[in-house]
């Protein structure tokens, strides 16, 4: 069963084609990886799905309904939550209040303020931020802020969770912990996950399927193994020549 379908999506920024004719489907209950070098169009794709950016053409279907071009707050209440690659917590609010606000506004059903506070504490415990609940979000470490991004996204009660490089900049130990957290919250909340990640080993480990973008074009899709063996992916990442240098991101 398809939860999210991307259909011939294009996005031009002036003369630059950030996305050209991208199509793929995300299965309900799966973890779907998005791979590609900087500038491949991954974050643009996230922004279009979440409603932060309007596509030039093409359609996005969520649960069978077209959602492209709708407002971000509407899309959020339909059940799509995203995190930001450059984290955007509400710095002056407490960690708990950050998540509480998402619970109050992000869900289709009405939640009272007292219930929201309890629910926020439950999510913070689940994500490993319970100890920091009363601190201002601005005092968290990078790892803490990335976790808060995930906690706030979970607060909106999503069906689809879109994670934009939640592991970038973390230490190897923190990456391992974050992967465990992602698996755990996915199972516990019955989620579908669409994930952008530059840490390729982590992405291969987590993802049921991977879509690869290169300069705004989809060049491959398949399981982690299929992607690793794909000639187009290899040439995009390593160049045509066998002796070409390696990419920092890989």
């Amino acid at each position: 069963m398809t939860l999210l379908a991307i259909n011939a999506l294009c996005k031009n920024f002036g003369g630059l084609k950030a996305l050209s004719d991208v199509s793929f489907a995300v299965e309900r209950g799966s973890i779907h990886g998005l791979m590609g070098a900087n500038g491949a169009g991954k974050t643009t794709l996230f922004s279009i799905i979440a409603g932060n950016t309007k596509p030039t053409s093409g359609r996005v279907f969520f649960d069978g309904d077209p959602i492209q071009g709708r407002r971000p707050d509407t899309i959020c209440r339909l059940g799509i939550a995203r995190t930001f690659q450059i984290v955007r917590p509400f710095p002056g609010l407490s960690v708990r209040r950050n998540v509480e606000t998402a619970i109050l506004y992000g869900r289709q059903e009405h939640v009272g303020t007292a219930d929201a506070e309890r629910e926020a504490d439950r999510i913070l415990a689940e994500i490993g931020l319970a100890d920091a609940a009363d601190k201002p979000a601005s005092t968290l470490t990078l790892s803490g802020r990335k976790r808060l991004e995930v906690a706030r996204a979970l607060g909106t009660g999503p069906k689809l969770l879109m994670l934009d490089e939640v592991m970038a900049g973390l230490t190897p130990t923190e990456v391992t912990e974050m992967m465990q957290t992602i698996r755990r919250v996915k199972e516990a909340n019955d989620l579908t996950v669409l994930i952008i990640e530059h840490v390729v080993s982590a992405l291969s480990d987590l993802s049921d399927r991977i879509t690869v973008l290169h300069h705004g074009v989809k060049i491959a899709e398949g399981t982690a193994r299929e992607i690793a063996e794909n000639k187009d992916v290899q040439s995009a990442y390593f160049g045509e020549d066998d002796d070409a240098g390696s990419d920092d991101d890989v």
Partner: peptide, 25 residues
């Protein structure tokens, strides 16, 4: 103390993040 106020707080802190978590800014 209201839900309305929580939404306005979020708008002050970061308007883009606010609309992304469902606030009709």
């Amino acid at each position: 103390r209201s839900r309305f106020g929580r939404g306005l707080d979020a708008i002050r802190e970061d308007e883009t993040a606010a609309e992304t978590i469902g606030i009709p800014v």
